[in-house]
Amino acid sequence: MTGFLSALPGAASQGLIWGVMAIGVYITYKILDIADLTVDGSFCTGGAVFVMLFSSGVNVWLAMLAALLAGMLAGLVTGLLHTVCGIPAILAGILTQLGLYSVNMAIMDMKASVALSITQQETLGRLLVSLRFVKGALDGSYPIWRHPIIVVGLFTAVLIAILYWYFGTELGASLRATGSNPNMARAQGIDTDRAKVLGLILSNGLVSLSGALLCQYNGANDINVGRGAIVIGLAAVIIGEVLFSKVFINFALKLLAVSIGAIIYYIVITAVLQLGGLNANYLKLLSALVVAIFLTIPYWKGKYFSKPVKPTKKEENTHA
């Protein structure tokens, strides 16, 4: 039990980092109504770009910006495969993801894993987040505000604010309309293909950024780090929705729910591993089961227990 408690801050930190990715998944899965599998590849791309640039002395923010751009490029590729080449979105994502494996390897100089030299205090100090700050911020070797929960929490808050603004603009509204009803969107003069590409770019940029954060946190980037990322993202989106959809009506709060969903996911996983003594290799099976169950519940509810729909009471000031 004490093992679990002491693991909590770390689990919450990781959950927050994955939450950034989950917000990216929310954009495609919930807003655009596309299941985008690019993320399993673009997550690693972010880490790969970051680890190489940072190691060669580039400023941490510039390296993260580069990671963001690389992820956006991956999203652009999927978007073009889908809209220009007419490949179904799922398949387009799988193709990009597959191709990205080679690209990610190439970025990392054909090494399956590259570490940041965090044994050097100076290097460690330049990072935004690190596993070492989790303890360090509490035992006084680092200032408290460097705790990953605070840093990534702030990062997420700023991100949500920007997305809230963006999806309230004309351009953002056209993305939401495209996901909600493409026929209507086109009839209102919205280029739905362009909107989908934009959404995929935005989403994969965030996913990649999250990869760059996790790379810092772990102090290394591994070629397999993004494997199953889409499932974690979906889990966070669904957990957030199941738990908060009644109370969080506002769009910004919905994004917050996704982030909290990711934290809960990580805490649950940590609990199962620590308390249940489960072999970590069963993690993927567990994740798949959790997502399958959470996807099943709303479907069965609608199918077997359908109640007359009550109009929701509070509808003010929401985006999506």
């Binding site: 509204a173 939401r176 009803n181 003069g189």
Partner: peptide
């Protein structure tokens, strides 16, 4: 668009045929 508000739907229609920018929706 079913998942959008009445006023948001109307705002989309009010911008029919115009470039969508970063101005408020």
């Amino acid at each position: 668009a079913a998942t959008m508000q009445i006023e948001e739907n109307m705002a989309l229609a009010a911008r029919r045929g115009r470039a969508r920018t970063l101005r408020p929706g």
